[in-house]
Design a protein around this nucleic acid. Sequence first.
DNA 1: CTGTTAGCGCGTTCAA
DNA 2: TTGAACGCGCTAACAG
Lengths: 336, 336
Amino acid sequence: MKKRITIKDIAKVLNVHHSTVSRALRNDPRVNAKTRDTVLAYAREHEYQTNMNAVQLRGTSNNAIALIVPNINHSFFADIISQLTNLAYNKGYVISVFQSNEKYQQEKEIVNTIIQHNFAGVIVSIAKDTINSDHFALLKKFGIPLVFFDRVCEDIFTPKVKVNNYEITANATEYLIKKGYSNIAHFTGTTSINVFRERQNGYVDILQKYGMEYVQPIVIEEDFSVEIGKIIFSRLWNFSVKPDAIISSSVHVSTGILLEARKYGIKIPEDLGLITFGSLLSSEIIEPQITYIEQPELEIAAIAFDLLEKMIKKEIQIGELIERQVQAEIIFKKSC
Amino acid sequence: MKKRITIKDIAKVLNVHHSTVSRALRNDPRVNAKTRDTVLAYAREHEYQTNMNAVQLRGTSNNAIALIVPNINHSFFADIISQLTNLAYNKGYVISVFQSNEKYQQEKEIVNTIIQHNFAGVIVSIAKDTINSDHFALLKKFGIPLVFFDRVCEDIFTPKVKVNNYEITANATEYLIKKGYSNIAHFTGTTSINVFRERQNGYVDILQKYGMEYVQPIVIEEDFSVEIGKIIFSRLWNFSVKPDAIISSSVHVSTGILLEARKYGIKIPEDLGLITFGSLLSSEIIEPQITYIEQPELEIAAIAFDLLEKMIKKEIQIGELIERQVQAEIIFKKSC
DNA sequence: CTGTTAGCGCGTTCAA
DNA sequence: TTGAACGCGCTAACAG
């Protein structure tokens, strides 16, 4: 193992001061061209690598961005992570991805880590568990730029990128009503999270507008999964009044619904209509193809990154409340 | 914005030396209990956060691990990232995820970044593009622990976690032969990557063993996608001799095959048998259900992390070649 | 038990 | 155009 070479090492060998080497490496014009070339050549040859810890300790610069998501392996988040990573890379930033596992406690510890490591900024979609926002307030106190996307903290003033959940769910509900469905259930997550609360509201408001009596907001507190989809659907189906349509907040849950429905011999779309948030890679293969709500992941990532970058560059002040909304879209297929 | 509080600030207020504060914060037993409690109380109250850049600059410790994958949003990698992130979290490490986008150039720059930031270790699955391994050799030169998983560099001596690609593909091929298929094609990636090369070999060897003449290794140099699956399949299907079965290295490609096959009115498994690497979330819903090869993502992550941690703790030397193999499994369904 | 001193690698003064 | 000196925040070695 080679000892790491430093600017002082280079300075010693070339008989110049290490500050000259420092300047040469950063192409400071105030350094003799010949000296600079010698330094650069030597540095390249000996594989000199800047020690970013030293740079960051001085407070000069910092090119690391942190990203906190509930789950890395959900396609919605995976797509956003992938896109953000690319955007960051192209602008010379490094992205560290953290997973809260939907747990407030973990999220809190992650935020501490981020502060300790002096990240230049943070992009977050909060855990289902998160009811307290003190840790994000702390981030602001330390002057670290913060942008929320999708799942946000309502009581923190900072830029946020949100999806039109209320409107799109209302539209989906209305579409089902106009298709003739009258017992529409809504499978979604805890209402302490804006995303699920807004979907609930959109759903309930439309049902009330049409004077429908069957209002079934099914709140799934557990993590979304195929298994939980099966269980919850099965439970609902054994009630006296069965749903004739479902709007589901998760493809995992929807998959569970489809499997359980098949077990019961339920025909889609005749016996049961279905609209799901999120699409499956194989959505085109499934018979019938499922009508789904597509969220613009790439756009969310682009806007979130742009806002964060502007905060890092002080073009947006910390504590400034900016809300951007992107439009989800219903992709009409054959499941209702 | 609050100015960040340091051990010196605390020392000044409490009239002790900052080294005492440092000791108190790390529960050094050589510090007076009362002094320690005062320090801890003050630190907590004023939301003191260690500056990890300073800690790492001194070289004392480092709890950051880097992970490089070709794509974050492929379920195989997303699952492994998710698992590694959790393992790391439980052991007090922080994971930074980097995406090479299958590009050698990006991978190289990522490695430089990793060196500059003094990561404690690196876990890598290489890009399809990567033909040169100098950047990984550099990592070793700098004394940074390195573990490969799945896609590895053969010429770098370091711990590696591999899947039994040769054997599982051979088994899959033999299974198809015994099912009566005789024109079996193999859709896979560039043979410069061990994973795809081994699959090719397993496939070819079995065909030769059975004296089969139709040997069609279809090497897809492009990124795996539904679109490319459609294109390649369509091209192959318009040859004079058509395949009656396909083994595919990617669910994305397989999805393309299925869609294109349906367009042509090809029946599965009667006209065409199919086995794919990787499963779909919705695999159970598809008719017919597709036989697939499942790779033990969680086990891969666990072994890779364990090996890296041992390297960080010097229980395994840098440069030591250790190869661990995990077993993929064929999940038999109805597509052949 | 506590204080002093030194230095990790770097960039930015200020002086020459 | 270059050098000398300083300090970012922290910990370790040494001294008391």
